[in-house]
């Protein structure tokens, strides 16, 4: 039972931030694509903007690993 709780916690720790990241990127992506049609030189900036929300998923991943390691 304890293992189940740890597994669910780890899954939530990575799953929820990943969903949030996906939602944020779905908003940034079209805006970046629209900007690129008018100013192609903003390519690097666009990629960086899209990469920014990934912090949530990455930190979520780190927390999930910590939960699994501490719990397991």
């Amino acid at each position: 039972m304890e293992m189940l709780g740890i597994g669910i916690s780890a899954a939530l720790a990575i799953g929820l931030p990943a969903l949030a990241t996906g939602w944020a990127q779905s908003r940034i992506g079209p805006a970046a694509a629209a900007s690129l049609t008018e100013r192609p030189e903003l390519g690097v900036t666009a990629i960086l903007l899209i990469a920014i929300p990934e912090t949530m998923a990455i930190l979520g991943f780190v927390v999930a690993v910590l939960i699994l390691m501490r719990g397991g």
Binding site: V44, I47, L48, A51, I52, E54
Partner: peptide
Amino acid sequence: VHALRLHFV
């Protein structure tokens, strides 16, 4: 991408 981001941001 991520090394660039760590620098730029």
